[in-house]
């Protein structure tokens, strides 16, 4: 049986953990409110960036598709439920399924997913960035990353951005948005309806679209992450509360038992003297 001292120490540590999780919940609630507010314009921006790909219907066009580029958007910071592992799970499922015959390359944003992918698929990583997720994602972050991706010279025929799409405070789903290299755009049949396009314009357009898409997915990801962290921390606070209740009960019982024991000792000692 645990001594009184042990239980009281345990109780104290659980209480302080509860305080931590509670304040983490408050912090992420504030961050979430901001992320959600900023998501609305970013969504319009993202939908706009996708529309050319959708109008030109590049995804269903017949082309040779051998090289795949996956951009995984998550972050460095944990304690937010399954946010990171869902991204990793979704790419892993694709790697074992529909991407089996592709030569896949990975670009990873955030340390968490990187460490999950490093084992079996480590050789596929061409670029990874960290120190991301502490602050609100900015368009500069996205454009710098897009620049890096283009500068790294990675070749692809088709690609996708894997990210967590925010649905509501209690739910998000891991989804992907297709991306295409600039030569796919150039050779697209449907692009011919657009008036005089030169390669420079197309290159600019493509770079900007990639940056916009990455920005949009970062915003969605950040919002899902904060909401998920909020839920996770709330659950942790609740669990800690239950634990505190159980421990307090045990502490009081043990205390009573100790008092009763001492009383018995005193009384029986007194009786023996008589």
């Amino acid at each position: 049986m645990a001594t009184l001292k042990l239980i009281s120490m345990r109780l104290k540590s659980v209480k302080s953990i509860q305080k931590i999780t509670k304040s983490m919940k408050m912090v992420s609630a504030a961050k979430f409110a901001r992320a959600e507010r900023e998501l609305a314009p970013a969504r319009i921006f993202g939908v706009g960036a996708r529309s050319l790909y959708e109008v030109t219907d590049l995804a269903s066009e017949e082309r040779e598709k051998k090289k795949f580029l996956a951009i995984l958007v998550s972050s460095d910071r944990g304690l937010c439920g399954g946010i990171h592992s869902n991204v990793a799970k979704s790419i892993r499922a694709d790697l074992n399924g529909e991407l089996e015959n592709y030569d896949t390359k990975l670009v990873i944003i955030g340390d968490k997913v990187k460490s999950m992918m490093q084992g079996k698929h480590g050789s596929k990583i061409v670029l990874s960035v960290n120190d991301y997720g502490k602050k609100v994602p900015l368009f500069e972050d996205a454009s710098r990353l897009a620049e890096e991706v283009i500068a790294s010279g990675v070749e692809y025929d088709i690609g996708a951005v894997y990210y967590n799409n925010f649905k509501s405070v209690i739910s998000y789903n891991t989804s992907k948005i297709p991306i295409f290299p600039v030569d796919a755009l150039e050779s697209s049949e449907k692009l011919s309806v657009y008036d005089d396009i030169d390669n420079d314009v197309l290159q600019c357009y493509h770079e900007f679209s990639l940056a916009s898409l990455i920005f949009y997915t970062m915003k969605e990801g950040a919002c899902s992450e904060q909401s998920s962290r909020m839920t996770a921390m709330e659950a942790a606070t609740k669990n800690a509360g239950e634990m505190i209740d159980r421990l307090t009960l045990r502490y009081n019982r043990t205390r009573q038992a100790v008092i009763t024991k001492e009383l018995i000792e005193i009384i029986s000692g007194a009786a023996a003297i008589k």
Binding site: P41, I44, F45, G48, F139, D198, V201, C204, F215
Partner: peptide, 25 residues
């Protein structure tokens, strides 16, 4: 017209009569 910057959106599929822009060309 849909007109948006990353942090602010000004129009969302709103019908307008004309828009002038300056492009690289």
């Amino acid at each position: 017209l849909t007109f948006s910057s990353p942090y602010e959106s000004f129009y969302k599929k709103q019908n307008i009569s004309q828009v002038d822009v300056s492009t690289l060309s």
